[in-house]
Design a protein around this nucleic acid. Structure first.
Length: 554
DNA sequence: AATACGACCAACCGCCTGCTA
DNA sequence: GTAGCAGGCGGTTGGTCGTAT
């Protein structure tokens, strides 16, 4: 505890701050702490302005010493920055500013200060307040958080930067595209598709995890789940790696999957990209996040058997500890970190799926392990091959993404390897991802997926090489969202047996059916569940109603 | 007219980073 | 190397105001 110096009290303390304010309850303590809180008075403002004019900005703690202003340095700085400094632009944001903010947010995420730097006269606090309000408003209205052009632009930028910069070179697509209400995002996607049919040819080539992630995320929105997924959840802030939704104690409290155990930023980003909280909602009987999420995502419920054996089989080499194979089936549930990461990165889901219905898992652990190992091997081979093939693509193969590249250069400024752009973070770590979207792999995965011609990916026997592992894993990362997305829509299509155009207006209803179907499949254990895992199996015709149509439109 | 609700906004809080002794 | 400090940043809170019921 400290006191204002006698000098301040006797000499510098403004008259209007002396007696009355010192007795004001807003002051912390009547005898020891006299720093004031609460709204600033005009007199205080005048004092602060006068001080800054004389001494300049900075050294805010000295303000109190020199002026007797009963405010802490932080408060002085904030007051100056947000209200007193010159050239501040007050009033509502203009339409242009709002659009720019949306674009900036898509690129930067909740980097209010950086966003404010691009908006002269606007403060970070102002932008933040505006955005938070906007989120609430649009979520409530069921509107896309980002304008369609922003979504497409972000995707295209991520594509371009990925091809130009390789790993971590194109961290442009902001995670919040994923963070925000998935309903909003996929709504935005479809709105964009509706409103921008001129560029619809791009739609089928959406390899961006954000697209899938957000669409998937729709499933965890309050509209679809009883559990509310706050747009700005409480969580421990990680600089340049903000991880909303995940890592929040609230999440656990809400019954959402405890992603807080995920330590790895990349994993966080991936997890966020898929908006898995609600989907990963672990039932009391389910310890395995992958199994659980799988169950939900592929139309099965949490009652499906734990399948973390498969998860561990697919443990990526990039960032996860090796696991003891011998403990897969007998050890306690694996750490959530592994489970979640595996869920997102491992190709094993294929085997996992099958284990859910007709997999050898049912016949015993050993059989399951053998089967899954086999599946893993074949899937790796296949993926490596795909990645290898796709890696030969040339930049010229990419589609024209010049449209809507208003801020292309700015995106370069945010090529932060640890930026919050979860979506592109995934892409960054998946060099094959974008390449795949631009080449034959794209045709095989994305196009076929969107056209519903891939009931199941055929893994050819090819030599698995260590050097291809990264690409494979990356590719799998890409396919994971693909799979997730497909799985999300799986039962949407199965609801009526036909591909259907899913609009923003009908999404909620359909998703509601989806969950209903989830529960149904959970108990019935249909074979469909086994088709969800894996990037090939995700793309059954009925699984991708909306995107199939998008493909048609393209 | 009273109340409830939501939007908006200012300010605070806690954490992090960078600098310096 | 590290502890302390200042400043910055993002999340959250609480108050005020306008609008709907």
């Amino acid at each position: 505890m400290r006191r204002v110096s006698n000098e301040i009290e006797d000499e510098v303390l403004p008259s209007d701050l002396s007696a009355a304010q010192l007795n004001d309850e807003s002051y912390e303590g009547s005898t020891s702490i006299v720093l004031k809180k609460g709204p600033w008075t005009s007199t205080e403002d005048d004092i602060l302005v006068d001080y800054v004019n004389k001494h300049g900005e900075g050294n805010w703690n000295a303000v109190q010493k020199h002026t007797g202003l009963l405010r802490c340095g932080k408060s002085c700085r904030l007051r100056w920055a947000n209200h007193l400094r010159p050239n501040l632009k007050k009033g509502a944001f203009t339409a242009e500013e709002e659009r720019f903010i949306a674009e900036l947010h898509a690129k930067m995420g909740n980097k209010w200060a950086r966003m404010a730097a691009h908006l002269p006269g606007r403060t970070d606090n102002e932008i933040k307040n505006y955005w938070n309000t906007r989120i609430k408003r649009r979520q409530r209205a069921g509107l896309p958080l980002y304008p369609p052009e922003v979504c497409l632009q972000g995707f295209q930028e991520s594509q371009r930067n990925q091809s130009n910069g390789g790993l971590n070179g194109g961290d442009k697509m902001h995670l919040d595209l994923l963070q925000t209400n998935s309903y909003e995002i996929h709504g935005a996607i479809f709105d964009s598709l509706k409103d921008n049919q001129g560029i619809l040819p791009y739609a089928p080539k959406f390899p961006d995890a954000s697209v899938y992630g957000n669409m998937l995320k729709g499933l965890d929105s309050s509209q679809y789940c009883s559990v509310m997924t706050p747009a700005s959840p409480k969580h421990k802030r990680l600089r340049e790696s903000t991880i909303p939704f995940i890592g929040s104690n609230d999440t656990r409290k809400n019954g959402l999957y405890p992603f807080s155990q995920i330590r790895d930023n990349n994993s966080d980003k991936i997890a966020q990209s898929f908006g898995m909280q609600a989907l990963l909602d672990p039932g009391p009987s389910s310890h395995n996040s992958m199994c659980y999420s799988h169950s939900l995502s592929n139309g099965n419920s949490s009652t499906s058997k734990p399948t973390f054996e498969a998860v561990k089989l697919e443990l990526p080499s990039l960032q996860y500890p090796e696991l003891d194979l011998g403990s897969w089936g007998t050890s306690p549930p694996p750490p959530l970190l592994e489970s979640v990461d595996d869920f997102f990165q491992s190709p094993t889901p294929i085997s996992t799926l099958e284990s859910d219905c007709s997999s050898p898992q049912n016949s015993g652990l050993l059989d399951a392990l053998l089967y899954q190992a086999k599946t893993l091997s074949s899937s790796k081979n296949h993926c490596s091959d795909k990645s290898s093939n796709s890696s030969t693509a040339t930049p010229g193969d990419r589609g024209d993404s010049s449209a809507l590249n208003v801020y292309e250069t700015e995106w370069e400024d945010y090529a932060d390897p640890v930026s919050p752009f979860g979506a592109t973070s995934i892409l960054n770590e998946c060099p094959a991802l974008l390449r795949a979207s631009e080449n034959s792999l794209d045709e095989q995965l994305s196009f076929q997926a969107f056209t519903g011609n891939i009931p199941k990916l055929e893994f050819v026997d090819q030599v698995w090489t260590p050097e291809s592992e990264n690409q494979t894993l990356s590719l799998l990362n890409f396919t994971r969202p693909d799979f997730l997305f497909a799985s999300d829509w799986h039962d949407l299509g199965s609801g009526n047996g036909k591909n259907q155009a899913i609009t923003t207006d009908t999404t909620m209803t359909l998703l509601g059916d989806h969950f209903a179907s989830d529960r149904k499949h959970m108990t019935s254990g249909t074979s469909q569940s086994s088709q969800v895992w894996g990037f090939g199996s995700c793309a059954t015709a009925n699984n991708m109603p909306a995107l199939c149509q998008l493909s048609d439109l393209g």
